[in-house]
């Protein structure tokens, strides 16, 4: 019988952010969802993340549908997960939905962002450097972290 209300430590935010870093480090790809004319549209992208988890960086050709969509509506959502498509995913897999706003990276910011991006995806250098490609940044507002099938925590990011 519990007579005194147990003092429980507040959930360890640090532990969860470490898990996010681990996930973002091991997963090269994310599903990016954009909207055009009220129609959601999903694309697979290669992403990288800043150390403070505030920004996600990806590259796209300017002639793609996702680029056009972003230009008309900057609000996007991304999904990153470590599923293996096995039953064990229901308790082992972690899925993170990020929501935020995308901007095209300005020339001043470009060297820092490029360094972060190419560190994770060195084989994409040619693609990123092409004059037809754009380097994009998602300012993340929230991460929704889903574990054990139905357990959902929200990490709110103050930009």
């Amino acid at each position: 019988m519990d007579f005194t209300l147990r003092k429980i430590n507040v959930k360890d935010t640090k532990k969860l952010t470490e898990q996010l870093h681990e996930l973002f480090f091991t997963q090269p790809l994310a599903v990016l969802s954009t909207t055009g004319n009220s129609q959601p549209y999903c694309s697979l992208i290669a992403f990288a993340i800043t150390d403070d988890l505030k920004d996600m960086i990806f590259a796209t050709s300017r002639s793609t549908r996702k680029y056009t969509n972003i230009k008309s509506n900057a609000r996007v959502s991304l999904l990153i997960d470590n599923r293996s498509n096995e039953v064990s995913d229901f308790h082992n897999a972690m899925a993170v939905t990020a929501t935020g706003e995308v901007t095209e990276i300005s020339e001043q910011e470009e060297p820092d962002c490029l360094r972060i991006y190419l560190k994770k995806h060195p084989h994409l250098e040619e693609f990123v450097m092409s004059p037809t490609s754009a380097l994009m940044r998602v300012e993340v507002g929230k991460y929704y972290v889903v574990r054990r099938f139905q357990n959902v925590m929200v990490l709110q990011i103050r930009q």
Partner: peptide, 16 residues
């Protein structure tokens, strides 16, 4: 209570 990064706020959305 353990410390976390200041710009990150943790909240529960759905608990099992």
């Amino acid at each position: 209570e353990p410390e976390g990064a200041e710009h990150i706020v943790l909240k529960a959305r759905q608990l099992t």
